[in-house]
Design a protein around this nucleic acid. Structure first.
Lengths: 141, 141
DNA sequence: TTGTACTGTAATCATATCAGTTACAGTTGA
DNA sequence: TCAACTGTAACTGATATGATTACAGTACAA
């Protein structure tokens, strides 16, 4: 799995946690434990997806635009890490004589695509609010 | 996803397809479209898992030991690629003051572990025979 | 018993991907 | 107009991936 997915989720949860729902890349980077440039790259995607707004200039940063209760992890997964389940390497070769060697790519592709769908379905049941809720539960332990 | 998983599945399907259910690494490598050393490495794992036997010496190779109808992809996944869903990179830091930053690792870990379970559950519904069956269907198209 | 055909495994190399870092142009609000 | 931001690209080092080569060990067949 792509780590940018984790960063995106973490950033959104962090923004949802803040009273003003707004923070500059440096504050987010510190919370996520990475560098501001990486955060800005991830947030650019989230902005294109409509999940956050940006305000440049002093006192600016990234602001959550949507209700954390309606944004689910499948949305973020599709945006940041779609296809993570499917391996880049393909076995077999369609031009081969053997039935197995020539059709394996297609069959495995079908299997992995369904796996991907399953994963998305699972992620669609978890919202940013849910993640924040789980974090608050940790606090009490 | 680890490509060794794909190689393992392909190899088992190929063996199941052959009347003698046996082939040397070179024949498998050709069918999979990779080199024999890589096949031998994967087959070593499958041997340790009890899925294949080896016979060294002339006329030897790898032989399927189990009924392809009872070997499912979850077995192979656990053997070859367990943990593929979980990213190697972790966000946040448990020593942090912020509730979000300090607990994100644990929460995301829980989410990814469940995702992994889901994936295994999906794979457990597909056997080597099923894959071979799908390949034979391709033939007819 | 000897040679051949295999497995098992490690070493090496080239390439790709990943994450961190630095830099700088562009933008905006005080 | 200046300071604080974003957006993006270039560069670096680390790690992962897959191909290739090599060679010791093993078993079967002649």
């Amino acid at each position: 799995m792509n780590s940018e997915f984790t960063i995106a989720v973490h950033s959104l949860v962090y923004l949802a946690y803040l009273p003003e729902r707004m923070a500059p890349s440096e504050a987010i980077a510190e919370n996520v434990s990475t560098n501001p440039a990486r955060i800005r790259k991830v947030m650019s995607c989230l902005k294109r997806g409509g999940y956050v707004d940006t305000r440049e200039g002093a006192g600016g940063g990234y602001r959550l635009t949507l209700d954390p209760a309606i944004v689910n992890l499948a949305d973020i997964y599709r945006l940041m890490a779609q296809g993570s389940v499917i391996p880049s390497w393909c076995s077999g070769n369609p031009d081969m004589d053997c039935v197995v060697g020539s059709n394996m790519q297609e069959v495995m592709d079908g299997i992995f695509c369904k796996a991907e769908k399953q994963l998305e379905a699972y992620f669609s049941g978890i919202t940013i609010s849910d993640v924040l809720g789980q974090i608050k539960e940790c606090k009490e332990c």
